Simulated assay, not measured.
Amino acid sequence: MLYYRDKGKGKTIVFLHGFLENSRMWRFFQNKLSKKYRVISIDLPGHGRSSKKTNEVNRMEDMAKKVNKVLEHLKIDEVIISGHSMGGYVALAFAEQYKYKVSGLGLFYSTTLPDDDIKKEQRLKAAEVVVKNPKEFFRLSIPNLFAPQNVPKLQSEIKTAIKWAKHASLTGISAALKGMRLRKDRTDVVRDLGKPIFIIIGKYDNAIKNSELIKKMEGVKKLSIYELETGHMGALEAPEECLEILQTWLKQNYK
């Protein structure tokens, strides 16, 4: 079973981390929100303390099933599920497979849209490169996920993100890249969910095509979209702002 952190009591919020991250990225949010909610953060396959056993390809659907195993173990049958980047892809797959368990959905710097052909090719190349030279891969790729103006002042946060990446197994990293490139369009999952949804995007996020996502979200009911002055790593670039958005959204939708 996947490693998880479980803290607090009340309505359950599940946090899923992104590619090269682990459940530690949610510690700030978990400590704050657990005063009012039950907050569970999970290490996805190949990452963090779930890094030892992994498949050659970790599809989002398969990761979602393993997340559900954790919830079954904890006897939890209703959650607000949210995720950053890859974690958002897994959250969407979870909402598709276990819609009856989802009372809310959150996407942190993530998208319902699949990879285009160029991105798919980049994923395959990255899967090869990271196995050959992981240190160089982390050094070059992770800072680029931050907004350019934030890089000089957030060196400590960048080092933390690189440290998290080192806790992922190389096979797990490769498997995640291969799995992400195979994911399908899950816009209809959001349209059909019928529950409160939030999406946080970064103005300087080069990893997500925000304009295309926003266009796809037109007409979706119970949806709130927020934009911050960040890159792709808003949980590290603007944690207080992200937390405030989440707390406000929770108060508005779960009284």
Rank of each mutant, 00 (worst) to 15 (best):
M1Y: 11
L2W: 06
L2P: 15
Y4H: 14
Y4L: 11
R5I: 11
K7E: 00
G10W: 13
L16Y: 03
G18S: 01
E21F: 01
E21L: 02
N22P: 11
R24F: 09
R24S: 15
W26Y: 11
W26R: 10
W26Q: 08
F29K: 13
Q30W: 02
N31W: 05
L33D: 14
L33R: 13
L33M: 15
L33E: 08
R38I: 09
I40N: 00
I42C: 14
I42G: 14
D43K: 03
L44M: 06
L44V: 10
L44Y: 05
P45F: 02
P45C: 02
G46T: 11
G46M: 01
H47T: 12
S51C: 09
S51A: 09
T54A: 02
T54N: 01
N55T: 15
N55A: 04
N55G: 06
E56V: 14
V57G: 08
N58R: 04
R59F: 09
R59V: 07
A64F: 04
A64K: 05
V67D: 00
N68I: 04
E72I: 12
I76G: 01
I76E: 08
I76F: 00
D77S: 01
S82T: 15
S82A: 12
G87S: 08
G87Q: 04
Y89W: 07
Y89K: 07
A93Y: 12
A93P: 11
F94E: 06
F94A: 03
F94S: 10
E96R: 15
Q97M: 13
Y98F: 08
Y100V: 15
L107W: 10
F108A: 06
S110G: 07
T111E: 00
L113R: 06
P114L: 02
D117G: 07
E121S: 12
Q122N: 12
L124R: 08
K125H: 13
K125W: 13
A127C: 14
V131M: 00
V131P: 03
N133P: 10
P134I: 09
E136L: 14
R139H: 09
I142D: 10
N144G: 15
Q149P: 09
N150G: 04
K153S: 02
E157W: 03
T160M: 07
T160A: 11
I162V: 13
I162F: 03
K163Y: 11
W164P: 10
K166W: 01
K166I: 04
T171F: 07
T171I: 12
T171K: 13
G172N: 07
G172M: 04
S174F: 03
S174Q: 03
A175S: 07
A175L: 00
A176L: 01
A176G: 13
L177C: 11
L177N: 10
K178C: 05
G179K: 02
M180Q: 03
R183V: 08
R191T: 09
L193G: 05
P196A: 06
F198D: 00
I200C: 06
I200G: 07
Y204E: 09
A207K: 11
K209Y: 09
N210G: 07
E212L: 11
E212P: 10
E212R: 06
L213C: 06
L213D: 06
E218Y: 09
G219D: 01
G219M: 04
V220F: 08
K221V: 05
Y226L: 01
Y226G: 08
G231P: 07
M233N: 14
L236A: 08
C242T: 15
I245G: 12
Q247P: 07
L250N: 03
N253F: 01
N253Q: 03
Y254F: 13
K255W: 02
